[in-house]
């Protein structure tokens, strides 16, 4: 409803180019208002440092906990992946197979999809190795013939999550080949590890959801108190024509900032923890002659955590604002 002509009332006289300047001025005014709202929200938070710090710390812990678990899980999966790729498939050659058939088998194995390398260990080599390693050398002399079969050591290409199923189909196709007596591979523990990490993922997800709701409630409650504290101001702003969006804006900024600060502190907590734990992991890994290194949050992880924190804070503030702001009307 225009009581007056809007252009007359709200625009400074600018001459012929008035309209153009008007839009530009409006946009500048709008941005300036956002900047002012952001800095006043920040100022109000810093004006109550203890209260703000406590809220931010609670949010930080709620964000850091599931993140830490997720990182741990990633590292366990990485260990699993490293070991998985070092696993070998042992192919026992039928005892009665002729040398030509064995040569053919070698070629067939090399041609199979998902095979990196094939190593042939003849029955004699196997026996020598066994003698050397087992300490039963003298006892074996009493045997009439070599009880060990010739063996192919097949190094499969196992990548990521599909590794196990790839290996399983590889085993099936090896078993179908001629002159193959038996195929052995210790896949069970890989399957177990995968099952455990799958449970772990679900647990982390459940905890993340619970703590995410916690963050929403913390931010929501903080914003609710802020709204109550500024009730008088909200009424005056509404009386002089402030829109719902205008009234809402500082609270949304506050919520977003709370979530963002919480995420930043959570990132510091996680980085600190992983540096601390990482040293011990290094020592342990060197004892196992492993090159394993703990995977930390990384820059992308920090950014993702900050985004999650800010968005969660914004949603929490939005919920509180929706619940409480409409009730405050000038009477």
């Amino acid at each position: 409803m225009a009581i007056t002509e809007k252009t007359n009332r709200e625009t400074p006289p600018r001459g012929a180019t008035g309209q153009k300047f008007r839009l530009a001025d409006r946009w500048r005014g709008y941005r300036a208002h956002h900047r002012a709202t952001l800095s006043s929200s920040l100022g109000k938070m810093l004006g109550e440092p203890i209260q703000t710090l406590m809220t931010v710390l609670v949010i930080a812990i709620a964000l850091a906990l599931p993140s830490a678990m997720l990182l741990m899980l990633n590292n366990v999966q990485k260990i699993g992946g490293d070991l998985e790729s070092s696993s070998q498939i042992t192919v026992f050659v039928a005892k009665l197979a002729e040398s030509k058939a064995v040569e053919g088998l070698a070629l067939q194995l090399e041609d199979l999809k998902g095979v990196i390398s094939v190593t042939y260990v003849s029955a004699e080599q196997a026996l020598e190795e066994f003698k050397a390693l087992s300490g039963f050398g003298t006892a074996l002399r009493y045997l009439d013939e070599n009880p060990l079969p010739a063996v192919f050591l097949v190094q499969p290409l196992l990548s990521g999550e599909t590794g196990v199923s790839q290996a399983e189909s590889l085993i099936t196709s090896i078993e179908a080949l001629e002159s193959v007596e038996d195929v052995q591979v210790d896949m069970l523990w890989i399957q177990r590890l995968n099952a455990i990490t799958e449970i772990g993922e679900k647990v982390v997800l459940a905890i993340s959801i619970a703590l995410g709701i916690g963050v929403l409630l913390i931010v929501g409650n903080t914003i609710r108190l802020a709204i109550q504290g500024r009730q008088e101001e909200i009424i005056v702003v509404k009386l002089v024509g402030g829109t719902d969006a205008y009234v809402r804006r500082p609270f949304l900024y506050t919520g977003t900032l709370l979530g963002l600060f919480g995420a930043v502190i959570a990132s510091f907590m996680l980085i600190g923890c992983f540096i601390w734990i990482g040293r011990s992991v290094e020592i342990l890994a060197s004892l196992y002659q492993s090159q394993f290194e703990l995977v930390g949050l990384g820059l992308s992880g920090v950014l993702a955590l900050c985004a999650i924190g800010a968005v969660t804070g914004l949603i929490g503030a939005w919920i509180a604002v929706m619940q409480h702001l409409r009730k405050i009307e000038p009477k």
Binding site: M1, A2, I3, T4, R9, E232, E233, I235, V236, K238, L239, V240, G241, G242, T243, D244, Y246
Partner: peptide, 25 residues
Amino acid sequence: LSRSAIPNYRRQIGVVFQNHQLLTD
């Protein structure tokens, strides 16, 4: 006038309140 049109309407009126309604912050 709908609820969402109220702010724009109020911007076109000036009101002096009995208790001033000034913000002390």
